[in-house]
């Protein structure tokens, strides 16, 4: 797999750490309650097929990225800076 970082260009996937589903970008409010936090921390959509994921470019520009990727084929469909998704 190669991942096209918006800042660094096309890079080896070993430079990145996949962290989980991109729903992690939408963090609940601190007082949102135990159910909301349980859901955020533990439960996953775990989609088969095109999927939005949060990746960290630790061996590159250290940016947080939302990678759209097909979990059935490993094809990378698109990469966006997480801060743009979070807006």
């Amino acid at each position: 797999m190669r991942v096209a970082c918006p800042l660094c260009g096309d890079r080896d996937s070993r430079e990145f750490t996949p962290v989980g589903g991109a729903e992690l970008v939408a963090r609940p409010a601190p007082e949102a309650g135990a159910e909301a936090w349980d859901d955020y921390l533990h439960n996953r959509v775990n989609a088969c097929g095109p999927s939005q994921e949060l990746w960290y470019h630790g061996a590159g520009c250290a940016s947080w990225l939302v990678v759209e990727r097909d979990t059935a084929s490993h094809e990378v469909l698109g990469v966006t800076l997480a801060r743009e998704v979070a807006r």
């Binding site: 775990n46 084929s73 490993h74």
Partner: peptide, 8 residues
Amino acid sequence: LDFYPSYA
């Protein structure tokens, strides 16, 4: 693990 979600 390869450490990315996968069904492949």
